[in-house]
Structure formats: structure tokens, C-alpha cells
């Protein structure tokens, strides 16, 4: 229901590829922008800083909760 509501917010004729995913259309970050740096503790015992991974491709995978599929 929530999704339907979001779609109905835009006039149908103006829907284009950019807006097919309403969530992405309202994202704070966009493709082409620098990824904000962060440092967080991890389950392997050491903290990880995004900036330390400069020079490699990184896949950042947010997931809602442990015990759900990643």
C-alpha cells in the first residue's frame, strides 16, 4: 500500500526511468558522488574505515537485521 501511495504522488505521464523506484528517487546520495567515509567496528574483531579501501572496488551491503538474509 505504501508503494502505491508513493507512485500516485507523481502524475503518471511524467513517470520516467528515474522514478520507477520511488525510494531511489528520494535518495540522499546519487551515483557519481563520493561515498561518505565512516569507521565502524566489525564482527571480525577490528574496525574498518572505508577510506582505507581506496584503490579497490567496494560493495557496501546494508541489511536490516542479523538473522535475515544478507
Amino acid at each position: 500500500m505504501r508503494v502505491l501511495y508513493r507512485f500516485s504522488y507523481f502524475p503518471l505521464a511524467k513517470l520516467d526511468v528515474q522514478l520507477t523506484n520511488p525510494l531511489e528517487a528520494t535518495m540522499k546520495l546519487k551515483v557519481g558522488q563520493p561515498a561518505p567515509d565512516f569507521e565502524l567496528p566489525g564482527h571480525l574483531g577490528k574496525s574498518v574505515r572505508l577510506r582505507d579501501l581506496r584503490g579497490q572496488n567496494v560493495v557496501l551491503a546494508f541489511f536490516p537485521l542479523a538473522w535475515t538474509p544478507i
Binding site: 563520493p34 567515509d37 581506496r54 560493495v59
Partner: peptide, 9 residues
């Protein structure tokens, strides 16, 4: 989010 070698999304 896929981030490239230069830190760009």
C-alpha cells in the same frame, strides 16, 4: 552501494 577505486558511488 558499489564504490569504485576512487571512492565514487
Amino acid at each position: 552501494f558499489v564504490i569504485d577505486r576512487d571512492g565514487i558511488i
